[in-house]
Amino acid sequence: MKAAPFEYARAADVDEACAWLAADDGARLIAGGQTLVPMMAMRLARPTRLIDINRIAALSYIRQETHQDQDGIAIGATTRQCAVERDALAAAKVPLLARAIPNIGHAATRARGTIGGSLANADPAAEISLIAVTLDATLSYRAGGKTTDIPARGFHVGAMVTSLPEGACLTAVRFPVWQGRIGTGFHEVNARSSDFAFVSAAAQIELGADNKCKRIVIGVGAATDHPIRLESAERQLAGGALDPKAVRAAVEAALTDIEALDDLHATAAYRRRVAAVLAARAVADAFADAQGKKVQGNANAH
């Protein structure tokens, strides 16, 4: 299981990486390589040239940024998943991300795997993609000497398919920071605790002083070929008391028409049904969390 031959080059900066990408149709960027390298080993991916962006210092950071009056946490594309996992600022400002990250692979893959690499790879079960979609994160990429923003929801379009233009390099993702009484919930189910999820669900809410839901987002991953938002449920539940039965009914209704994936690990029926279960649990956790109650968390808690 050895990769097909390729050329290797380390890019000094993003524009150099982009220029090299543009010069060679077969070139690919490598960040953490935790998905790309196995694909290459099995010769399912055969880049002619591998452009290594790991050493571009400007792509590795976690910082607070205000963008069009919206507070956000910006994370550079090659920031390691383990760096975000350990980062107090990210945990405080984007708690949903902090809840999800320990569920990605293993410590040894999070030590190399990057935030941008996971987003660009766009596995339907990727936790970071789910959180980006759920929170309406903004992705930035560089191409032709120009930086462009794209919403996470427009970025993820299919299984391992994104709207990132040819020759572009993803540079950052910016998660909006919510203010107020915030609560988050994240659940996923898989065979073994560290496997790709069959289904995952994330929710974030803001509660008013009356314990009514002021704002709610709910995302579901792995059930379909890319992460989705349960918008109809969000609309229905916003402003309400998040009664468990109402939540369940709303998420079930939002999931009735999805085209669920069907594969070796889980049937479409399983994914559709359990997506509703996990989405409801994520909302329940978020509700409890916002009220300062302890949340048990993921069903597959380690």
């Binding site: 290797y8 390589g33 935790q34 390298v37 196995p38 080993a41 591998l50 383990c82 410590a107 040894a108 893959t109 030590a111 190399r112």
Partner: peptide, 9 residues
């Protein structure tokens, strides 16, 4: 950090 040496060139 513990990493997998098969996943890196």
């Amino acid at each position: 950090a513990a990493v997998r040496s098969c996943l890196m060139f």
